Simulated assay, not measured.
Amino acid sequence: MFFKVQISLSHIFPPALAPWLSFVGLLWKVVPFPLFEFQSKWIAGTLCGRLSLPSPKEMMADIQAFYSSMEASGTPKRYTHNMAGYQFEYDDWLAAQCGCLPTEEWRK
């Protein structure tokens, strides 16, 4: 599951343009608004210098590993941003990066 969290960096930041270009809400099969809030907090923390990103080279390596894993499992690339099954792990990871509390259990 580690690779899924790492690839999720690219759900927000394209490696070659990070941190100056970012996207909120590209994901699907999610509970949207708590996810958008965590993504926005992480973007803000990165832009103000409180949080840092891995190098573009590290981010690209994670993306390549993710796509290799998808290919090996027969999952089409159109499912790249499908978060079904691990959204709350991703939300909690983002919350930890931002210094926020994790997702409340009742939301999960």
Rank of each mutant, 00 (worst) to 15 (best):
S8N: 13
L94R: 07
N82D: 15
I43A: 01
S52Y: 01
K29F: 03
S69C: 12
F88S: 14
R78T: 07
K4N: 13
A44T: 06
A18H: 06
A95M: 11
T103R: 12
P102C: 09
H11S: 11
Y86C: 15
F2L: 13
K41N: 01
Y79Q: 14
M60A: 12
E104C: 13
L26Q: 07
I63L: 01
A61G: 07
F88Q: 14
M60V: 12
I63G: 00
K77D: 13
L35D: 04
L51H: 01
F2W: 08
E89P: 01
H81K: 00
A65P: 02
R78F: 09
S68P: 00
D92P: 11
P14L: 02
S22R: 09
L101Q: 15
I12M: 10
C98G: 06
T80K: 01
S52M: 07
P56W: 06
I7G: 10
A72F: 09
A65M: 12
M1L: 13
M83P: 00
G85E: 14
P54R: 05
E89V: 05
P15L: 13
F3P: 12
P34N: 13
V30T: 05
Y90S: 05
K57L: 14
F66A: 11
L51V: 00
Q64T: 11
L94V: 06
A16K: 10
H11F: 09
T46G: 02
Y67S: 02
S8G: 15
A16M: 06
W20A: 12
F13N: 04
M83S: 06
Q64N: 10
T46D: 03
G49S: 06
W106N: 09
L101K: 14
C98W: 04
L27D: 02
S73R: 15
G49A: 07
A18F: 06
F33V: 04
M83G: 03
W93M: 14
P56L: 07
F3A: 14
M60E: 15
N82Y: 02
F38W: 02
L47K: 04
Q97S: 08
Q39L: 00
E105P: 06
F3Y: 13
L101A: 15
Q6M: 15
E58M: 05
T75N: 09
C98A: 14
S10R: 03
Y86A: 13
E89M: 07
P102W: 09
M70W: 06
F66Q: 09
V30D: 01
Q39T: 00
A84G: 03
P76L: 12
S40A: 15
Y86P: 11
L51A: 01
A84N: 05
C100D: 15
I7V: 07
A16E: 15
L51T: 00
L47Q: 07
S40T: 09
D62W: 05
A44N: 05
S40V: 02
V5R: 13
A95Q: 10
E37A: 08
W20M: 12
L51F: 00
I7Q: 13
T75F: 04
G49E: 10
F13W: 09
A18V: 03
F33L: 10
P32L: 05
V30E: 05
L27W: 00
M70V: 04
Y67G: 00
W20F: 14
F88L: 10
I7Y: 12
L9S: 03
F66R: 11
H11R: 05
S10E: 12
T80W: 01
